[in-house]
Structure formats: structure tokens, C-alpha cells
Design a protein around this nucleic acid. Sequence first.
DNA 1: TGAAACACCGACCGGCGATCGGTTTTTGCG
DNA 2: CGCAAAAACCGATCGCCGGTCGGTGTTTCA
Lengths: 139, 139
Amino acid sequence: MRKRPVNLSNTLPHLGELELTLLQALWAQPEQSALRLQQELPRAQQCSLSTVQSTLERLHRKMLVRRRRQGHAYVYCARLGRAELLGKLLGGVIRQLHTGSLDPILSSFVDFADKIDEHTLDRLDELVQKRKLSRFEGD
Amino acid sequence: MRKRPVNLSNTLPHLGELELTLLQALWAQPEQSALRLQQELPRAQQCSLSTVQSTLERLHRKMLVRRRRQGHAYVYCARLGRAELLGKLLGGVIRQLHTGSLDPILSSFVDFADKIDEHTLDRLDELVQKRKLSRFEGD
DNA sequence: TGAAACACCGACCGGCGATCGGTTTTTGCG
DNA sequence: CGCAAAAACCGATCGCCGGTCGGTGTTTCA
């Protein structure tokens, strides 16, 4: 009775609005039931329990949430942290457009960081340095 | 007779496969007609001229290509370079998931760069340094 | 002036996210 | 045990989008 996973193609998973909202909720508080998630939906997105359930089912097939039975009900939690998902999506976008050389991607990102405000580029620099250092102790 | 632009929502533009292929072709060689684009389509994606035309029309509505009449035919060129589009898409993904703090995004990206191979992080570092320097002369 | 080139229009298909109501299964209580 | 509540499960519908095409009109030029 198992359902086939979706997104067999090469495209990035394209999250819908409700899907995203539910993920956010699970990040804020892991291990929630469909009912609980439905009840804590923001005004603007209230919908029936069925809708929440089938959206969770979709997320499950996308392997973005894990679920575990508790009694006869499911309890859900996100499989990936926000940062990991972000990384995955970035990777997807990048894979769509990359052409062998990574430079355009890196410089696009540097560009992006620089455009945000004056501090962001420095912050990026710090993180790069930190990561470079941790390559020694790390592995 | 003008058509309304699509994608009035907040989501990122989600490019289809053919759309992407056509953009790539226009990056490789700007100023091409629909016919020419159709003829140079890779085997795997050959389709009728009509299809190419309507896909270009969609790209036009998405404001991703500009077109100019030459005789009674159109000649297309990409509005954004590959790097710019990448930046836009990255921005879209990031906007979907960001939560005020940019740190998770930056560190996701550093993570991403580090995972590719041993040199990429260093290359990113170089680009950051270069950009930081160019802030003096630049503006 | 007639044929070729091409834009333009409308139709259809399949996939997906959102939405819901009805049906079945599980469970816990009196 | 039997029943009502809870929740999963199932399937249907909707609207949008990308891809696909054929037919029709319009422009151009030999």
C-alpha cells in the first residue's frame, strides 16, 4: 500500500506555501501531530485537518518529514533542519545553472551577500575563516 | 493585446526544462530567432516551432528575455546573465526560508562550498577578499 | 500576386499543491 | 463487549503551470 516517492525528476522539490508553513512549525517545535499542527496554523492559512494530513503526506513522500506512530496517530518531525534544507535547495538551483566552473556561482553569492548590507560580507568572511580553521581539528 | 505578466505571487519563478535550455542557448549566443533556437535544440528536446515560440512567450512574460522585431520576426536575447539569474533564484530560495538572521544562510553556503571539493572554500575566500578590497576603489 | 515565413491563438495533456468529505480503522471508555 | 471519538486513509475536485501542437492570420519578398 506504500506510495511511490514523488519528484523522480531532476528538478528541485518546489515547496508549496502550506508545506513550508508546516515545516516551519516543525522546526519551531518538533514532534507534533497533524491535529496540533492544524490547530496552530496562522489565521491566514486555516484549513481542514484533512488538508493538513495530505500535505504532511506529500512532505513525507518528499522525504522532508519523518513520522512515527504514537497510539494510532502519527507524530511528525522534520528530517532536515532549516539550514540543511536551505543547502539542499541552493544546491538544486545551482545544479540547474552550473556550467562546469563554480566561479560564477561563488561570485554570485559573494555578490548577493555584499548587496544585503555592509556587514554581511564581513560576516561571510568570518565564517569562511572559521571553517578553514576547523579543517585542521575537524577531520 | 498585451498579456499580463505571470508569477504575481511571492514564489520564485520555477523554470521548466525547455525554458532553461532556451536560456542557455541565448547565453551561448544572444540575438537568436525562434526558428534558429528550435533548430539548435539538442536531440533529446526537439519539438515544433510553435512549442519553442510559446515557451519564449512565457519567458518573455516572466521578463527573462527581451525581444525585438527584425523584419516581421522576433529576435530574442536574455535579460539577465547566468550569474544574475542565479543570484535571483538564490535570493528567492533564501527569502523563502530566512528568519531574520542571515547566519544560517551564510553558513549553509559555506558548508555547500566546502562539501564540493578541497579547493572551493579557498576560492570562495579569494573572491570574498577581492570583493572586500574593491569596496575601496569601487565606491 | 502567390508562396514562404512567422506570429498569434486556442486547445489539450499531465503533474502538482491545495482543499475537502466520506469511509475505514484504531482505540479507549463505560 | 460494544460504541463513540479520533484519526488515518481514500479519492475527487480545483486552478495553475510547463510542454506540446495545429490552425489561422499577417507580413514579406521573389
